[in-house]
Simulated scan of single mutants.
Amino acid sequence: MQVFTRRIQQTGKSTYIVSLPREWVAANNLKKFDQVRMIPVSTGLLITVDSEAKMSEAEIRAGRSDTPAEAARLFFSKYLEGYAKIRVTFPEYSPQTMSFLKERIRRWLVGVEIVEESSTEMLAQCLPMHDKLPVKLSIERMGSITSNMVVDAINSVVEANKSLAEEVISRDDEVDRFYHFVTRQLNAAVRDYSVLNSLQLEDPAECIAYVLVAKSIERAADHAVNICKRALHSSSGIFDADSIVDISEDVVGVFKSSLTALLGLSIKKANETMTLSERVAVKIEQLQTLPPRKKEKADSQATLLTVLGSLRRIAEYSEDIAEAAINIASRKVT
């Protein structure tokens, strides 16, 4: 990275001037009377251009051999980068791809509207929502949805309630929507300090930690879905349901504790969460190593191991969230 040095000039009694490097001005296509942003940061003064103008519109040209899923992945990548508009053009009329893309946008993305559409082109507008939905609020909502998913997933297995299992699976879309939205916000915050401030964050380094937190919550929700899928395919229910319910309550408690530590930036609470998770892991391992009962069917044993495996992973993701809380809080202490 090139470093420029300038001397401070003074004009009049109270105005100080610093010239901008010619190379930087040219690289950002700036001209006379254009505005730049000057943002005080902990290490000095940041001078930047309007990032929203630079990220105004992205264009995706779908190829004839591209599958609907491939076109959707390209669209999602541009959404996560932070573009305000995303234009998708197709070489020919492709109703299957367009329908697939619109369905994925509706299910998994926040603040996206199709504003123009023809037989070979689609334009999506991504609405700015930085000031309306700060990162911590999104994380809190993701965590609340996920913890309820885990509770209901266990109930669906214990009660052999397939309709409840299907309903829990459908909730995973909402967690995915928040995950993609948080990632988009944090990508924008890394580029633009004004977005960082609107998200109520102080340091770009926090963005990395919060992306990891959002991913951990999203993966915990995926394991709730795994439990529900097992409930849908199990024909014999689950043996020793009381033990499973007890352990699941412990895991949900650990998960909620990690979120409390993160949202409150409490190092003490985060360390308590780590200790609780270790205790839960011991309980899960003890139950996993028990030999199958004589009356227990193979299907029931497979369900038990699947549920225990997912609960263990959720506890591990909770530890990751607690660790992120410690990393963020320790920076503020120093």
Rank of each mutant, 00 (worst) to 15 (best):
W108Y: 15
Y79R: 03
P128G: 02
G143S: 08
T183I: 07
E117K: 11
L212D: 04
L133R: 00
A205N: 07
D131W: 10
D176Q: 07
H130N: 13
R73V: 00
S144D: 15
E121S: 12
E159F: 15
E159P: 06
E166V: 05
K85E: 12
V195C: 05
N197S: 14
D203P: 08
I145W: 01
V112K: 01
L123Y: 03
R106T: 11
S99L: 11
L133Y: 04
P95M: 04
G82K: 01
E140R: 11
E166A: 13
R171Q: 06
F75T: 02
P204R: 07
E121M: 12
L212R: 08
V115G: 09
R184E: 02
V182A: 09
F178I: 09
A188G: 12
M122V: 15
V150Q: 06
V115D: 02
Y179L: 09
E116Y: 08
R73I: 02
F90W: 01
S170F: 06
A84K: 10
P134G: 04
I86C: 06
M142N: 10
R104M: 15
R184F: 00
E166R: 13
I114E: 15
H130K: 11
N155E: 15
L80R: 00
N197K: 11
D172P: 04
N161M: 09
V110M: 13
V115H: 08
F90I: 03
S198P: 09
N187E: 12
E116S: 11
P91G: 05
E174S: 12
E121C: 05
S144L: 13
A205H: 08
K102D: 02
K102M: 10
L101M: 08
I169G: 05
S156C: 08
P91Q: 05
K132I: 07
T146L: 05
Y93C: 11
D176P: 01
V190Q: 07
W108H: 12
D131K: 14
V175D: 00
L109A: 03
L109S: 07
V168L: 06
S156N: 04
I86S: 00
L186I: 05
A189R: 07
E113N: 06
K102P: 06
S119K: 14
P91V: 04
A160T: 14
L74T: 02
Y79G: 04
K132V: 14
V195P: 01
K78N: 14
V190P: 14
K85M: 05
A165R: 10
L74P: 01
Y193Q: 15
W108A: 12
D173M: 00
S138R: 13
A124F: 02
S144G: 13
D173G: 06
L196W: 03
L101N: 03
E117W: 13
H130T: 13
M142A: 11
I169F: 04
F178K: 01
V195D: 01
C126S: 05
K136M: 10
A188P: 14
L109Q: 08
K78M: 13
V182I: 14
